[in-house]
Design a protein around this nucleic acid. Structure first.
Length: 421
DNA sequence: GGCTGCGCACATT
DNA sequence: AATGTGCGCAGCC
């Protein structure tokens, strides 16, 4: 009952705070939701996390503190940095895969990683895994345990008790941007998780002490995405590459799943050169980046599990090739194999996967409609143009793009595969 | 005391 | 240079 309701409330709250020029942080969000709707902060926290995971809300580290953004709005603006979405998607799907239930997972909401895509080239794995640290929960613990000299954060009294979240909000970092700990910030909180994370993230890029390294628009958190990967970036990568050909049980591996899809989408995106405004910011960036990385062949597509994808650029390249082959006439068993995987995956996509996919593809608002209509992979395969244009109550423009560039392609790929098989 | 509006400086692209 | 963000303060209830 409450999920959609909460979504609305929270998004509303975020918008409202933003329009009021107040930072949409956890505390304020919880407070406002409680005031307006009487919802318990705890619950709000939980719901917020879910929204973060489904990318409806983006969690960002801006100017040294955590803020939450309405993904639907953010999306249009900033270009790259918002990998968040992708990341989130990845993570979300990962979680989802595990739990198999829609929004049920409650793990920490991590947000976006700012990961400069540029870094990717140089130290992808490093960046990725570094930030893997802690997640909120981890961070949380650390801060509670280690440095929390003065619990004097704004939060303290805050109604919010959501531990994980609190951690997040807590980090009001004097990371440098702000000359001094603001009124609300407890001076002592020195190293907030965010800062730490960031610092760790780019060991070589920027000195930890550098404000730039710690603050700014960093989509900091998220390391949680693709936990596996994060934990063993190197391994993951290798594994992924190695495993990939064999991917069958892929379904269980979010990363794998996403990869397949991703690749698909990526192609699409590229082909149709989606308008940047529709793309999730990083999409464009990523595409470019990816391209550069490996002479035009690789294409990390902004799919739900971006992180995973990222690391698997290599795979991707082969994938791409495969796909190309497939779309253009077929290339070999490898191709069909891949296709197969993808299709199978598609059949097993949950409602959440579908929503996640579209969110990552740059249609967060519309993704909600898919979720609302409970469109899972199978339903997706059955969707017709009219269903998309009129059955979801979404705007025509995005609907057309979604149908033509994504659904149609997914369906075609799926059925082609079947033919082959 | 809490909420809201908003100028303005800062951050980011 | 343009635009987004949010601190800090004043006004309102």
């Amino acid at each position: 009952m409450s999920e959609s309701k909460y979504r609305e409330w929270i998004l509303d709250t975020i918008d409202s705070l933003r329009s009021r020029k107040a930072r949409p942080d956890l505390e304020r969000i919880c407070r406002m939701v409680r005031r307006r709707h009487g919802s318990e902060p705890d619950r709000t926290c939980a719901e917020l996390e879910k929204l973060i995971q489904e990318q409806t809300v983006l969690k960002v580290n801006y100017k040294g503190s955590i803020s939450y953004r309405n993904a639907a709005k953010v999306q249009r603006r900033s270009r790259k940095k918002y990998d968040v979405t992708l990341t989130m998607a990845a993570r979300r799907s990962a979680v989802e895969e595990a739990s198999h239930s829609d929004l049920s997972n409650g793990d920490s909401a991590l947000g976006p990683v700012d990961q400069d895509e540029e870094d990717l080239e140089a130290d992808t794995s490093v960046a990725m895994d570094t930030d893997s640290n802690a997640d909120e929960e981890g961070a949380d613990e650390s801060r509670d345990g280690q440095d929390r000299p003065s619990p004097g954060r704004t939060f303290e009294d805050a109604p919010v008790r959501c531990a994980s979240v609190r951690a997040v909000s807590a980090p009001c970092s004097p990371s440098g941007t702000r000359p001094g700990p603001g009124p609300g910030c407890s001076p002592g909180s020195g190293l907030d998780c965010v800062s730490l994370q960031r610092a760790a993230e780019r060991p070589s890029s920027l000195p930890p002490s550098s404000p730039r390294a710690l603050t700014h628009n960093d989509w900091a958190y998220d390391s949680a995405v693709c936990p596996v990967e994060r934990q063993n970036p190197g391994m993951q990568r290798d594994k992924a590459a190695a495993t990939k050909p064999t991917v069958h049980s892929v379904t269980t591996s979010p990363c794998a799943l996403k990869n397949n899809v991703k690749k698909e989408v990526g192609d699409k995106l590229e082909d149709s050169s989606l308008s940047s405004d529709q793309l999730v910011p990083d999409y464009g960036a990523r595409l470019e980046e990816t391209k550069n990385i490996s002479d035009g062949r690789t294409q990390a597509l902004p799919l739900p599990s971006d992180n995973c994808t990222f690391k698997k650029k290599i795979d991707m390249s082969s994938f791409t090739e495969a796909e190309d082959g497939m779309l253009n006439g077929g290339k070999g068993d490898e191709v069909s194999m891949k296709k197969e995987n993808m299709s199978q995956n598609l059949l097993q996509w949950t409602v959440a996967d579908v929503a996640s996919y579209f969110s990552a593809a740059g249609f967060p608002e519309q993704a909600v409609a898919f979720r609302t209509q409970e469109i899972d992979g199978k339903s997706l395969l059955l969707m017709q143009r009219s269903d998309v244009l009129t059955g979801l109550s979404i705007r025509l423009g995005p609907a057309l793009k979604i149908y033509e560039r994504h659904i149609k392609v997914l369906q075609r790929t799926h059925f082609l595969e079947y033919e082959d098989l």
